[in-house]
Design a protein around this nucleic acid. Structure first.
Lengths: 152, 152
DNA sequence: TATTGTTATACTCTATAACTATA
DNA sequence: TATAGTTATAGAGTATAACAATA
């Protein structure tokens, strides 16, 4: 009748999610490494692929990172010639970020790596299982009002 | 007929797991902060709760961390008087780590925080849903031979 | 030599806060 | 003053590698 007083690590669903997520993410990071980018850089490049000309502070809001973190991230991406900073004429405090030609060319290749990584870890699940898990995760995001794009 | 060439972030199950896992883990970290420990420290303390007198290199193997990382971790835990380092008599290269009285008293309180955190994020799911997700994760761990205990 | 634990270095991401330039 | 972007600092985590002590 007495519940165990001290639950173990493996009794928590959060433990299992973190366990798998860490490995999946690290495997993805190793794949991206061959292209010279990190997971955070991939997330930003992918965002610019759809919405070019975003301002750093907008990105900070979308991705749940601080402006300082975005500043360092864009430093690295600019040094790799994957994005371009442009000052706004109207308000010189604002910048807009956009992909360079080589940045835009790279994104589909990175997306293919993401596809391959997902297939590697979740390919054995049925489509129904994958959808059920994804839906459960989306529900949790909705219920808790998460605003960040994960970058780890 | 043509598949989209450049898949988006949200098309990958790995993205959703990382998204939710990061938030769940950060929420847990904030709860642990009130007790002055990190998630990595919690995982080590919980391991010692079951298997006292582990050697740092054994822990490194179990948790998938380097010996250097364990060394820093045990430095902090010893400074907080939660664990004790003891040199082995037989082979002076070996140490054994064990919980102090206050360390042992703390673990059940941390476990309660973990229970509460899990309930907060996954409590709305049915037992069947939770078990299905946990089982899917365990299967992935088994298939890929993961060896690390997640500490982020 | 091989192994244990420690230390040093470097990098990523996180967070806070001070700083500049502009409005 | 308020805001955008930068920079500095500090901490936790990762990884590699050199190191001393011991076997």
């Amino acid at each position: 009748m007495a519940k165990p007083q001290t639950s173990g690590l493996e009794t928590h669903l959060g433990y299992w999610l973190r366990y798998v997520s860490n490995h999946v993410s690290h495997a993805f990071a190793r794949k991206l490494e061959a292209r010279g980018v990190t997971v955070a850089e991939w997330a930003l490049l992918r965002a610019l692929f759809d919405h070019d000309a975003l301002a750093p502070s907008e990105i900070a809001g979308n991705m749940g990172m601080t402006r300082g973190a975005i500043s360092k991230l864009t430093d690295r991406l600019e040094a790799k010639a994957l994005i371009l900073r442009t000052q706004s004429r109207d308000d010189k405090r604002w910048q807009t970020l956009a992909l360079t030609a080589s940045g835009r060319a790279l994104v589909p290749k990175l997306a293919a790596l993401a596809d391959r990584n997902d297939e590697e870890f979740f390919g054995h699940l049925t489509a129904t299982e994958r959808q059920a898990i994804a839906e459960a995760m989306r529900t949790i995001v909705r219920r808790h009002g998460f605003k960040n794009i994960p970058t780890e």
